[in-house]
Amino acid sequence: MDWIKKISSEKMLVGLVSLIAIGMSFIYLGKGTGESAQSIQTKSAVTAPAGSTTKIGLLEKELESKLQTNILMMEGVGKVQVSVNFLTGIKHEYVRNNNVTKRTNKESDKTGGTRETTEITEDNQVVIPSGSTQPVIAMEDRPEIGGVLVIAEGARDPKVREAIHTAVQTLLNIPSARITVVPMGGTYD
């Protein structure tokens, strides 16, 4: 009877080692075994520094133009020049494929003891469509506004200056301290 147990234990050990080797090869090849869960995750990345002449520069010019158009429509403003400065670059969050593989092994030794091991493997890759070099973007955030300077003819009048200041603050949802409104010609009343 002992020889049967010995042969069974040896076959079981060889089978277990073979199973582990096959499982590791599946994990290495990215197929995984056992419980597998896939989910979408995102990761932030800043793509362009503030003040560059790429997308940031274009966004600054676009925002300046929109602000200037709105301010020009206000009563008593006159000529207007608007400058906008961004503190940060454009932020992208990329789609990520999160693959988690969990495998549990139970081993028995000759004396009847058992040991259980659990191996968890995580793979977190950015999703890039086939035929493309660009990752899939989940979300794109505009850069944070550092400051706005408005130079207007009508800003000599405190009521007009305050109205411009309030309009910029409302449109951009930024703190009052980041907005400066001065009269054209540079003098305050």
Rank of each mutant, 00 (worst) to 15 (best):
S8Q: 13
K11Q: 12
M1P: 05
I90F: 09
E153C: 06
R142A: 10
T104V: 14
A177L: 11
P135Y: 05
L29G: 07
I128C: 08
P135G: 07
P49R: 07
M24A: 14
V136S: 09
H92T: 07
T180G: 02
T88Y: 07
I174T: 09
L58F: 10
G15F: 05
G15E: 13
M12I: 01
T133C: 04
G146T: 02
I90R: 08
V127S: 04
Q134F: 09
T33C: 00
M139E: 14
I71W: 01
W3T: 14
P49E: 13
A163L: 03
S132G: 09
G186Y: 02
I27T: 08
V14R: 15
S18L: 11
D141N: 11
W3L: 10
E116N: 12
I7F: 05
Y28L: 07
Q41H: 11
T118L: 13
T69R: 15
I71M: 02
A177D: 07
S9L: 14
F86M: 12
K79A: 14
L72G: 03
D189S: 11
S65Q: 04
I145V: 03
K6Y: 12
G185S: 12
V148L: 01
D141P: 00
T180D: 11
S39G: 05
M12T: 08
P183E: 03
E153L: 08
V46F: 07
P158E: 12
I128R: 06
S39L: 09
N105H: 02
V126R: 07
D2W: 03
R178L: 05
M74Q: 13
V77K: 11
G154H: 15
H165I: 06
N99P: 05
W3V: 05
P175K: 03
V160S: 08
T170G: 06
A167Y: 10
V80A: 04
S36T: 03
V80K: 00
V148M: 00
S39V: 03
V181Y: 13
P158M: 00
E10K: 11
G186L: 03
N124I: 01
S39E: 11
H165N: 13
E162D: 12
E35S: 09
V160R: 08
K79Y: 08
T101R: 03
K43P: 00
D2F: 06
G112K: 05
S65F: 02
N98T: 02
P143A: 13
Q68I: 10
G51F: 02
I40R: 11
